[in-house]
């Protein structure tokens, strides 16, 4: 519940960012560089004299949106392929499983980097790249789940009333994978936050002047010796966000477990 509250709060912050930022996030103050926290700048300023709190608030939206784009792309690819492979088996299943295995063998950040290298750096390209890397993860859990569900008697029952395979996939199999899918999505959302932060660190993630927490953290690293505390805040913010996704996922997993027990499934 705390985790859900935190996510809701961040969403609110992202929506009303323009009204609650104490300063213009891009306003430079070349006389007040790397200032320590004060009444006017609660978290201090960065190496261009920009207010760090305002930059974090400004970056909340992108930081939240980016992992959702990535997970969206991952689900868009992984869900249908996983469902078709798990239900129909055969050569399509064999092939898509091999492709997923191959994608799995490449560390996520590398794959995202390769895609950025080819398509050029932009926030959208990056998150689509991360989405491609999430697809095999979605594929795997969905395929495994469908393999189990297609054995269920209610699928046989659907076949005997004359339901087509597509109808069975949509009406019977898809709703029954929903729980697993949602849990997997929360895991991936957390990963997405971390990967966005890492890519932004290389300057190939979210592109300036747009700020994400990863971008802010990257910027602060350049002033590490002058103002070490600058690097701490965005890191804490990112960690809290990932934790929130993790706990929400755990919560959903538990409540789904209960439902399944009640349904005798």
């Amino acid at each position: 519940m705390v985790a859900l509250g935190l996510l809701a709060l961040l969403l609110l912050v992202a929506l009303v960012a323009d009204w609650i930022m104490p300063h213009d996030p891009n306003a430079q103050d070349l006389l007040g560089q790397n200032a320590p926290p004060s009444a006017t700048h609660p978290l201090g300023t960065d190496d261009l004299g920009r207010d760090i709190l305002s930059r974090l608030i400004d970056g909340t939206g992108v930081t939240l949106l980016a992992p959702f784009i990535a997970v969206g792309v991952g689900v868009l690819i992984g869900l249908p392929v996983g469902m078709l492979a798990g239900y129909f088996r055969g050569i399509f299943d064999w092939l898509s499983t091999r492709v997923a295995d191959a994608l799995f063998a490449v560390p996520g950040i590398l794959l995202a980097m390769a895609i950025v290298a080819i398509r050029g750096p932009s926030t959208v390209n990056v998150m689509i790249g991360v989405g491609v890397l999430f697809a095999p993860r979605v594929f795997r859990v969905i395929r495994a789940e469908v393999l189990a569900i297609r054995q269920a008697t209610f699928v046989d029952a659907a076949r005997t009333i004359g339901a087509s395979p597509m109808r069975i996939l949509r009406n019977n199999i898809l709703p029954n994978t929903a729980g697993t899918l949602i849990v997997q999505c929360t895991v991936l959302l957390g990963m997405g936050v971390l990967i966005e932060a890492a890519l932004s660190f290389f300057g190939i993630g979210v592109q300036p002047p747009q700020a994400s927490w990863g971008v802010v953290l990257r910027r602060s690293f350049d002033s590490l010796t002058e103002a070490p505390m600058q690097s701490i805040y965005p890191g804490i913010a990112i960690t809290l966000l990932v934790l929130a996704f993790m706990y929400v996922g755990d919560g959903i997993r538990e409540s789904i477990g209960k439902e399944h027990r009640e349904a005798g499934w």
């Binding site: 269920a152 008697t153 209610f154 046989d156 029952a157 659907a158 009406n171 019977n172 709703p175 029954n176 929903a178 349904a263 005798g264 499934w265």
Partner: peptide, 8 residues
């Protein structure tokens, strides 16, 4: 218990 889809 098994032949009716729990989500329908």
């Amino acid at each position: 218990y098994a032949s009716l889809d729990p989500t329908s």
